[in-house]
Structures are given as structure tokens and as C-alpha cells.
């Protein structure tokens, strides 16, 4: 059984405000319970796989200045700094 308090705690870590949205908790719980099916399959001999690439195929080390003044199309404060909310 998935603990609802745990779902609420995780939501907070993901910066999701669940105030007045308890219906999400129930729905997430249902999905997690469906995932229990993963307990029924034998995966003991499986390895994790991924796409692979040769070192030589990677990007060459060259400086290419970004032609646009990107910061001007983003939120910026004075002197082109980005302002973040107050850190505690």
C-alpha cells in the first residue's frame, strides 16, 4: 500500500502545491497501485541498456559565440542579471 503522506511529501519536493487538490493524491495512488504489476515479473537476469556512441563522433571543442543576445529575450533584471526570489 502506498502511503498518502508519502505522496504529499514527494509532491512538495517536486515543488507541486497540492493545497486543495487532494483528488490528485487518490489518482496518483491508483496509478502507483497499478505499477505493482512490476512485482510479478522475473527480471533477475536483465541488465540496463542504452544507446552507445564512439568518442570520435562527439562534438569538437570549438567556441562559437551565440549570435543573438539571448538574455534580452529572457527575464532579466538590471545589468542583464537574472533575478531569483529570496533564498532563505
Amino acid at each position: 500500500m502506498v502511503d498518502e503522506g508519502e505522496i504529499i511529501r514527494v509532491a512538495k519536493l517536486m515543488k507541486i502545491d497540492l493545497e486543495d487538490h487532494t483528488e490528485h493524491v487518490g489518482r496518483v495512488k491508483k496509478m502507483l497501485e497499478y505499477f505493482d504489476i512490476l512485482d510479478q515479473i522475473d527480471l533477475s537476469s536483465e541488465e540496463i541498456v542504452s544507446q552507445e556512441k564512439a568518442l570520435a563522433e562527439l562534438r569538437k571543442d570549438e567556441f562559437v559565440p551565440n549570435d543573438k543576445k539571448l538574455i534580452e529575450s529572457l527575464k532579466n533584471f538590471r545589468e542583464h542579471y537574472v533575478r531569483a526570489p529570496k533564498m532563505n
Binding site: F63, P65, L70, I71
Partner: peptide
């Protein structure tokens, strides 16, 4: 290095104006 780890911006950022 000339460029950053995942893009072509300058690896040594020290001589740029903020966010340039």
C-alpha cells in the same frame, strides 16, 4: 578547453558581461 561541456559557449567565462 575552448567550449563548455554541452554547448559551444566559452569554457572560460571570466571575461564576459553577466549572462553574455
Amino acid at each position: 578547453l575552448e567550449s563548455k561541456l554541452f554547448c559551444s559557449c566559452k569554457a572560460n567565462y571570466r571575461e564576459f558581461e553577466p549572462n553574455h
